[in-house]
């Protein structure tokens, strides 16, 4: 639908370094580019497909996800993402959106655990139902303030585990999340790096995911964001919806509390 827009701006992106005379000019041009992009966000396509998937009867039980409890009560989607991850009594676990969707697909639709976790991320040859569902659910939190609770002992425990993971240096390059994301106003190449230990930059970063990535032509979930950060960190593969992935998400989401959620967004 709005693919022409992407086609229009791709050459602009390629030409960007040529604009840059000094740091400030570069930053300004990048900001202009981002504003131009925001006019037409193909994430809408994922949101629409996700809504269809949410309402469609699927799986061995031929049921929709409309009775899925994302933490606000069965079937309530509005504002649910802004309060995730959170503790769920029925599973006795802290779950983020993706792991909660897996739970609902297993419980309500009768999919096996492995089926529900299949194709977590889309690619040239695979469409990810998970990323579409994530787009739909997150879009229903647009304009709502992040309010992740740290009440249940397991939520507190997840926060501590997530924090530990964030500062864990390892691998051949000695990298941790904190290597790039614990200082102010740093860049990797020309890319700004938010300080995710500080409220304001953490809010800005966290509330902008999921995002449609122009360079990939895909909508990317927060689980994907962590997966690909760890790849670049030279770590092994982060297991989709693993306890550690949820804990780290909770740590980052909590740091972003009070920020107005505004995603799916569009990014380079």
């Amino acid at each position: 639908m709005k693919r022409w827009l992407i086609a229009l701006f791709l050459p602009l992106m390629a030409a960007m370094p040529a604009f840059a005379q000094d740091g400030d000019a570069t930053v300004k041009e990048i900001e202009k580019y981002r504003q131009a992009l925001a006019d037409g966000n193909p994430a809408e396509l994922w949101e629409a497909r996700g809504e269809d998937l949410w309402k469609k009867k699927r799986g061995p039980k031929n049921a929709s996800l409309e009775q899925c409890d994302l933490g606000m009560g069965a079937g309530k989607v509005k504002g649910a993402y802004a309060a995730l991850p959170r503790y769920f009594e029925d599973t006795d676990k802290v779950e983020d959106l993706e792991s909660r969707l897996v739970t609902c697909m297993v419980m309500l639709q009768g999919f096996s655990y492995d089926q529900a976790r299949k194709n977590p991320f889309g690619g040239p040859d695979v469409k990810s139902d998970m990323e579409a569902l994530v787009a739909y659910v997150t879009s229903a939190s647009r304009g709502i303030k992040m309010n992740v609770a740290l009440k249940h002992p397991k939520e507190k425990e997840a926060f501590e585990i997530g924090k530990k993971m964030f500062f864990h240096r390892g691998g051949p390059h000695d990298f941790a999340c904190a290597t790039c994301h614990a200082s102010d106003k740093q860049r990797i190449r020309l890319q700004d790096l938010p300080n995710l230990t500080k409220q304001e930059p953490a809010q800005r970063a966290y509330t902008s995911w999921p995002a449609y990535r122009v360079s990939q032509g895909e909508l990317r979930s927060f689980q994907w964001r962590l997966f690909d950060c760890f790849r670049q960190q030279r770590f092994p593969e982060l297991v989709f919806t693993s306890q550690g992935s949820v804990a780290l998400t909770l740590y980052l989401a909590k740091n972003a509390n009070g920020g107005v959620f505004n995603a799916p967004s569009i990014k380079r």
């Binding site: 585990i161 864990h168 550690g244 804990a247």
Partner: peptide
């Protein structure tokens, strides 16, 4: 009461050249 390091190790899997033992730290790390 899961230990953070154990949770972390259980949350990754080997892929290509990047094995889970990369999470093991030397004294400096």
């Amino acid at each position: 009461t899961p230990n953070a390091e154990e949770v972390m190790k259980a949350s990754f899997k080997d892929r290509g050249q990047a094995k889970v033992d990369r999470l093991n730290q030397d004294e400096t790390q």
